[in-house]
Write a protein that binds this DNA or RNA. Structure first.
Lengths: 210, 210
DNA sequence: GAGGCTAATGACAGCCACTGACAATTGACA
DNA sequence: TGTCAATTGTCAGTGGCTGTCATTAGCCTC
């Protein structure tokens, strides 16, 4: 890697970390792009040459995680049922995600930023839209696995929608809870996915939730 | 109603219709608040006294629809299974929704705006966030119906997430399709909801989708 | 029905996210 | 080392949105 390239990477990382640090401490809306640029001592214009917008800094890390999940789903053996493939892919990709994050920012900072995303309306909206795009991608992968046409058969999009819905519920719960560790997240996700069957059954009262 | 009140209502409706008309013809991003204000011949400042932001005009009608759905869910008999209650509430509230819309803007305009919402990133994000809030509300209603604690039992949030996911898939399909009638929407929703069971079954290939 | 009160509006200034254009700087490479 | 291209800073401008203050317009009382 060039000196030039290295310099660019350093500037980008510095901007990223400065932005996330500011978001986590001061709040997203209370942080201006000028603040971020000033913290790294570059011009505001330079910030916008590295990131398409303020929002992009907040989703830089989540973007990596999404890519890893997509890879994990693609790597699942074709024999598995769709929902099972999604479940295993997500649960098993967290270690890789963790490693990827640590390369870039302190994991603890990322956790704090995650809470900011969930509690800042503008960021939550962006997060949900990104999730919708991810789901579309996953639906196509599932359809291909099963040899189906996404636009003709409703089932791929439906499983993915169900799955995504559960994931989002657990994300929100996790981010508002006390235990911000990876294991807590994994545990919560597994528990909630196990509840999909029971939740669809009509008879909630004959058997209480396990 | 006062002359003053009537004048206010007229100004608000004019702003709303002008905004939606501009969004539908020119596009959301291509429409400035100044354009909207100019079309009604009021100052930009006045626009912001009626609407918290440009976005709010786009979601004024959907907001009414959401309120009606919530009412419909609340009105469901307690005996029904949760998913069934949600399904019936949505399918049966569309007529009321239709009436409420017609009072405010031509239904055909609303359809066109709906397409704009689904195809404009900023609006889609906002739409998804609103949906998430709606789902939280519905989860609380379902939990209450069943005499459960939303924060202790995962099932209310899960059914609603599943349900919401399916609804969103159908919304997207409907908005990108050719048939923008209410009946098409109702039909699509019913069909997709019927697929929830089959989609969760592991054996997609032993029985093709009905 | 004139005059005072209050709510609605317009005009203006300013903040922040973001973009285009151009000049200055800095690393790359012959 | 000098040339070329990439990186950066500066400046000007747009659009969404807000606070402030003076002006206008409906309302209500005497």
């Amino acid at each position: 890697m060039n000196l030039r390239e290295r310099k660019k990477r350093r500037t980008r990382d510095a901007l990223l970390r400065a932005a996330l640090e500011l978001f986590a401490t001061r709040g997203y809306d209370e942080t201006t792009v000028d603040d971020i640029a000033a913290a790294v001592d570059v011009s505001q214009r330079t910030f916008f040459r590295y990131f398409a917008g303020k929002e992009e800094t907040a989703f830089f890390v989540p973007r990596l995680a999404e890519a890893l999940v997509v890879d994990a789903v693609r790597a699942r053996p074709p024999g598995e049922a769709p929902l099972e493939a999604l479940r295993r892919a997500v649960l098993e990709s967290w270690d890789a995600i963790n490693e990827a994050i640590v390369e870039l920012v302190p994991i603890e900072l990322h956790m704090r930023v995650y809470r900011v995303i969930e509690s800042t309306p503008a960021l939550l909206a962006a997060h949900l839209r990104r999730s919708a795009e991810l789901e579309e991608q996953l639906a196509r992968i599932i359809a291909e696995r099963e040899g189906l046409d996404v636009d003709a058969d409703p089932r791929p999009r439906i499983v993915v929608a169900l799955f995504g819905g559960v994931i989002r519920v657990t994300e929100r719960l996790w981010s508002t809870g006390d235990d911000l560790t990876l294991d807590a997240m994994r545990q919560l996700t597994a528990t909630y996915l196990d509840q999909v069957g029971p939740a669809l059954a009509g008879n909630w009262h004959t058997e209480p939730s396990p």
